[in-house]
Each structure stands twice: as structure tokens, then as C-alpha cells.
């Protein structure tokens, strides 16, 4: 598994947004956004509806032209040399659309032909079977349910052992079993070095998958968080006497934030400091009820980020 660190080698940058702006008839939809996605990571791209996620992803895939700025995929400018930049990029963009008058099999065959891949009966059957559409292969896509379409979209996105996957709401319409299978598949791909940029409203799924998060709102990047390095050294402690524990932190100048359930959240320099802290608390007679590494709830992080942006926006408007 390829682990991301803050000092990632530049050659590992697989996707790079560099001060990218997109305006539609004077309205700025994406405003000077810059971020990078590294090899082998699953990067969650989060924001409310209309935040600029889909526009950013469509620019990344060469479907929209940025008004200014530059987007590089695998070190190549997408808008100067799309075929080279997008070679080995699989994608699902928003609602998956297919030719409704063609069958699932014909839609798949068209994509395989464009990728110059095997279009023999066996190859097609295998791919449709993998996404559970073997029985519906001859039916026209206009008769497919949303879930079936999404599974066909997955089959198309994963056609050519992708190096990068760009997924915009890929779990829309999937049932819990399919969602779980998809999650496990994504983790497998990530472990084999595939880079994933994932946009989804299903925060619980993103939380289980993403190693890094990019928050966007009103066309601005409002936060980037590395879930491994930023959260690995946080701890949660809860004792039988919360007030005494608070005072203990205060006297030792340890910054700790009280949580609603009477516990405390605090930053540690290193993960190994957790054991030392517990030893000291026990030594000072604290009855520890719970002590564990702290992982912030994604929903809360998301709401916090968006709330800050809303407040900033209101201030600007005022």
C-alpha cells in the first residue's frame, strides 16, 4: 500500500489543479482552486450541491474548459493533450448516461472498441457478469433501473485497469450489498496503486474509504485534511471525574477540548505519547473510563467546514 505523507515526492502527483477558475456568463462557479492528488490515495472531494465539485471534475476530465488556470493529470495538461493526460483514467461523472436505444451489451461493446480492448463474447460476458448485468445484457438501457445503470457505469469506468479513477457520486442507486462490494473493490484498487478522486454525498462511505479530504464550497477550496497524519495523533480520554481531569490538563498546560459526553479531545505530538499520557493519569489517581485514538466524525468536520464558509460568505456579502 502506498502511504501518503506531507512531503510526498512531486513525481507522485497524479492530479494537480493549479489556480483553476471557471466562469459561466460572468458567474464564477470555480474560483482559483488549487490542490493535488497523489498516487495510490483515495481523495474525498466534498461539498454541498452547487459548490463546484462536478464542474471541477468535468474540467479535470477535459469535458469543460477552464476559464483560467491549469489542470494536470499524470503530469500532462489535460486541455493541451487530452489523449495523453487521460490515458488510463476511468470515470463516472454525475448521473451515468448511456445510449438508451442500445442494449447494455452494445453500450459496453462501444466503450471496449474505443479503448481497443477485447470485444469477444467471452470478454463481454465476463465484464457484465462482474457487475451483475449478465441477465440484462440484451435489454435496452432505457429499461434499466438507476442501480443497473450505475453498475454498468462501474463496468465502463473499470474497463482498462485504470491508473486514476475519477468518481462523481458513484454509489447513487447502489443497494447496500453492491455498495459494500464497490467499497472493497476501491480499497483493493487503491492498495494496488490506483489513485482515486471520489466525490460523494454519502459521507459514511467516504469516511471508510478516503485517506485525504478536499472540501469545496462556493467554488473555493475551504479545507484540505489528511486523515492519516492530521488525525492519527489525536486522543480521546474520558474519566470518572471530568472536572478533575480538566483541571489536570490546565495545570500542565495541555490543550484539551471538552466534548459533549464529558470526555476530552487533545492533540499529541506522536501516537506513542498516548501510552505515556495514560501512565501519568493512572499515576495521578485518575479513574480512566475510556482512552483511544480520536478520529473526528466526518459529518461533523463537513458541517464545521461548510458552516465556516457560510459565515465568511455572509460577512463578505454584509
Amino acid at each position: 500500500m502506498h502511504n501518503y505523507t506531507k512531503d510526498q515526492d512531486k513525481s507522485d502527483v497524479m492530479i494537480k489543479f493549479d489556480r483553476v477558475t471557471k466562469k459561466y456568463r460572468g458567474l464564477t462557479v470555480v474560483d482559483h482552486i488549487s490542490f493535488e492528488v497523489y498516487r495510490g490515495e483515495i481523495c474525498g472531494f466534498l461539498g454541498p450541491n452547487g459548490a463546484g465539485k462536478t464542474t471541477s471534475l468535468r474540467m479535470l476530465l477535459g469535458l469543460l474548459r477552464p476559464t483560467s488556470g491549469r489542470i494536470e493529470v499524470q503530469g500532462t495538461d489535460v486541455h493541451r493533450n487530452a489523449p495523453a493526460a487521460l490515458d488510463g483514467v476511468g470515470a463516472i461523472v454525475e448521473e451515468s448516461r448511456f445510449y438508451p436505444y442500445l442494449s447494455g451489451e452494445q453500450n459496453l461493446r462501444q466503450a471496449l472498441r474505443l479503448r481497443n480492448l477485447d470485444i469477444t463474447e467471452t470478454a463481454i460476458e465476463e465484464r457484465l457478469e462482474a457487475v451483475g448485468l449478465k441477465e440484462a445484457r440484451s435489454r435496452r438501457v432505457k429499461g434499466y433501473s438507476l442501480g443497473m445503470r450505475q453498475r454498468l457505469a462501474l463496468a465502463l469506468a473499470l474497463l482498462q485497469d485504470p491508473v486514476i479513477l475519477v468518481l462523481d457520486e458513484p454509489m447513487n442507486g447502489l443497494d447496500p450489498t453492491a455498495m459494500r462490494e464497490f467499497r472493497l473493490h476501491l480499497l483493493q484498487l487503491s492498495q494496488s496503486g490506483v489513485t482515486v478522486l471520489l466525490s460523494s454525498h454519502i459521507l459514511s462511505e467516504v469516511e471508510q474509504l478516503a485517506t485525504r479530504l478536499v472540501f469545496i464550497n462556493h467554488g473555493h477550496i475551504v479545507g484540505i485534511e489528511d486523515l492519516r497524519t492530521d488525525q492519527a495523533a489525536q486522543a480521546y480520554i474520558r474519566c470518572a471525574e471530568p472536572k478533575r481531569l480538566g483541571a489536570w490538563f490546565d495545570t500542565r498546560n495541555i490543550e484539551a477540548e471538552a466534548t459533549e459526553d464529558g470526555g476530552y479531545r487533545l492533540h499529541l505530538e506522536r501516537t506513542e505519547d498516548m501510552a505515556s499520557l495514560i501512565r501519568r493519569l493512572v499515576h495521578d489517581g485518575m479513574d480512566i473510563l475510556e482512552a483511544r485514538p480520536y478520529k473526528e466524525n466526518l459529518e461533523r468536520q463537513y458541517m464545521d467546514r461548510m458552516a465556516i464558509t457560510e459565515k465568511e460568505t455572509q460577512n463578505v456579502e454584509a
Binding site: 468535468r58 476530465l61 477535459g62 469535458l63 487530452a82 489523449p83 487521460l86 483514467v89 470515470a91 461523472v93 451515468s96 448516461r97 448511456f98 462501444q110 466503450a111 474505443l114 479503448r115 465502463l156 474497463l159
Partner: peptide
């Protein structure tokens, strides 16, 4: 969009 993804 899908077409251009497979054949840019």
C-alpha cells in the same frame, strides 16, 4: 461526456 471520456 461518456464518449469523450473513452475517446478524448
Amino acid at each position: 461526456g461518456g464518449l469523450l471520456l473513452h475517446a478524448p
